[in-house]
Amino acid sequence: ITSCPFCDLQVPLALGITWAIAFLLTETGVYNYRGCDMNVPASNSVSPYCRKHVPRMKHCRVDTSHALKSSPWFRFPYPLQWGTPVFNWKMALVMCAVSVIAIIDSVGSYHASSLFVASRPPTPGVVSRGIGMEGISSVLAGLWGTGLGSTTLTENVHTIAVTKMGSRRAVEFGAVVMILLSFVGKVGGFIASIPDVMIAALLCFMWAMLTALGLSNLRYSVTGSSRNSIIVGLALFFSLSVPSYFQQYGLSPNANPSVPSYFQPYVVASHGPLRTGYGGLNYVLNTLLSFNMVIAFLIAVILDNTVPGSRQERGVYLWSEAEVARREPAVSRDYELPFKVGQAFRWVKWVGL
């Protein structure tokens, strides 16, 4: 069998080559159309010629955001640089529900990662440690104003399987590199120059891999069981149909038609189908029921815990016991904190095994 030195880099190479071609087409003026301005929305263009070509200019050029030219070379990110955080209890409840779902996704990612690196499944203490660190990272993300929390990126689990690289040293080195690059403003501007069509194509690939990886976790249960097949089928069906019903209320005649689909749950929150006597409760329920992942989570959790099934059938027998893991040096090396940090926090239960 002939080895392929670039087989593990197919996606990055395809992204880089396409990005370079888009840069050349932009610089050579292929996307320049006489009398058309990409900063003017296509709906406001008087000329049919510009109305036809403005979307191509906005989505295919690499200089749409002007971030590369306007960003400074060096910039020090600091906490609260965008102002002090504003607390809204309605959005806090929504984020709490979404965080629970993110935790469930992270637990599955931890288990899948352990199998890809040929290690024992993590213990409950290791899982708690990972979830706790995600919470701390989300707090730091909020202080730095990134606009989103931190959680396990499930796509990276597939990266471990493709690259055969499961060393924590590689992750630590990558984290240090990203921290250093955050001080170089041109790096962020360069990444922001990726054309929208390339981002859409990359997301199609990433979400396809995410779906495949999520369904592959079913192999640890009895996949041939009609019980599991019905639960998975109902969760997928309702997660697509129920949010679609709620999101149609966001398409009011007075609504902005340019609102992206991922903002639809927040549009629905203002005038969704659920209307109780409390405005805050309406906001929370309409928002949560407009998320596909919330519906899938609720259906799967309710059915998995109410429909009778054995532990083997449900796939809940795979976690390692803490006492067994401590007696195995290989497992301790896999899950202990680096630089012997865990020795100073042995009194904290979720830090250890």
Rank of each mutant, 00 (worst) to 15 (best):
V284K: 12
R314C: 11
A296Q: 10
T306A: 05
Y317W: 10
S310V: 06
L285Q: 09
R311E: 15
L303R: 04
R314L: 13
L298A: 01
L281Q: 00
S290L: 07
A296V: 04
M293P: 09
Y317E: 05
G279R: 11
I299L: 12
R314N: 01
L285N: 02
L285D: 01
L274H: 07
P308N: 04
G315E: 08
L298S: 04
L285M: 01
V316E: 15
L285C: 00
L318Y: 08
F291H: 04
Q312N: 14
V307T: 02
V301F: 08
P273S: 12
G272D: 03
N282Y: 09
G315S: 09
N305H: 11
I302H: 02
G277T: 01
I299H: 06
V316K: 12
V301P: 14
V284D: 09
A322R: 00
Y283K: 06
T287V: 08
T306I: 11
L281P: 05
E321I: 14
S310G: 04
L289Q: 07
S320D: 03
V284Q: 10
I295L: 12
L303W: 00
L281S: 06
T306W: 09
I295V: 10
G280R: 05
G280F: 03
L288D: 00
L281W: 05
R311A: 15
S290Q: 03
I302Q: 05
E321L: 11
E321A: 14
F291W: 01
E321Y: 10
G272I: 13
M293L: 14
I295T: 01
S290P: 13
L303S: 11
N305I: 02
V294I: 09
A322S: 15
A300Y: 09
G272C: 00
V294E: 02
L281V: 07
G315K: 14
G272R: 06
S310P: 05
G277A: 04
A300M: 13
V301W: 13
P308F: 11
P273T: 00
N282D: 08
L298N: 07
Y278A: 13
T306M: 06
P273D: 02
